[in-house]
């Protein structure tokens, strides 16, 4: 399967300027094992177990979700992590032999091997309900623009720059997201997708195949 199909929201990172996608970090000249784009390889637990240069570890990944978004590491207790394609990481609810030559394995959760890791829309919709940091809560008009894929000025945000979780309030009681968010107003919010916040502007990275006009 080509990694360039329309549903692939991780490749959208390349379409967003301002964030470098260049450093793939593939080691030096001694012919180390390389990432093979045709199969899935389980991520090493820690750096000590790393064989393929530049491959993120499970530990790094859990730390990253916690540091950037406050998502507790236990969130991932039931998941294994895999790389297929350069830096494309997948979360899988089971464990299987590694490497495994299949077309898909769980959910693509983020793109690593670049300076700023980029979570996928589908990952934050599913796991971002546990986030407590870098959650930008949008009002209904802003949320609608975001879902359409539009960029917008958002000077009120004074949190971190970079990839943030855009969320909004939606009717219906959530059992899943009781955590009060550092940035959110009162009440429950539901993640919409991933925004890139730069220079006072919130850019929507909702991939083409997921955009909707909800106005």
């Amino acid at each position: 399967m080509s990694d360039g199909d329309a549903s692939d929201d991780l490749t959208d990172a390349e379409a967003v300027d301002g964030v470098s996608d260049a450093d793939a970090g593939t080691g030096d000249t001694a012919d180390p094992p390389e990432n093979d784009g045709q199969r899935f390889d389980r991520l090493p637990a820690t750096a000590d177990e790393r064989v393929v240069p530049g491959r993120p570890t499970r530990e790094e990944l859990l730390e990253w979700w916690e540091q950037r978004y406050g998502i507790p590491p236990e969130t991932w207790d039931g998941h294994t992590f895999w790389e297929k394609g350069n830096g494309k990481l997948w979360a899988f609810a089971a464990d299987v032999v590694s490497p495994i030559p299949v077309e898909g394995l769980g959910l693509r959760i983020l793109r690593a091997r670049q300076e700023h890791w980029k979570p996928s829309t589908n990952a934050v919709q599913r796991f971002g309900t546990d986030a407590t940091r870098n959650v930008v809560v949008l009002d209904s008009e802003e949320a609608t623009r975001f879902a359409k894929g539009e960029d917008q000025e958002l000077p009120r945000w004074d949190g971190d720059w970079g990839y943030v979780i855009a969320a909004h309030e939606i009717a219906g009681d959530s059992e899943a997201s009781e955590t009060p968010r550092a940035t959110g107003e009162a009440g429950d919010v539901e993640p919409i997708g991933v925004g890139l916040y730069l220079h006072g502007e919130l850019r929507s990275t909702v991939p083409k195949g997921r955009r909707e006009d909800l106005s």
Binding site: S7, V102, E103, R108
Partner: peptide
């Protein structure tokens, strides 16, 4: 658990992956 979703049509598989990911499914091998 493990759910294996198979199809012999590669083009249609891309729709399968898109739907599964939109619904937040993580136990599917395609």
């Amino acid at each position: 658990g493990l759910l294996v979703g198979n199809d012999n049509n590669l083009g249609r598989l891309s729709a399968l992956r898109h739907n599964a990911e939109r619904l937040g499914i993580t136990n599917l091998a395609v």
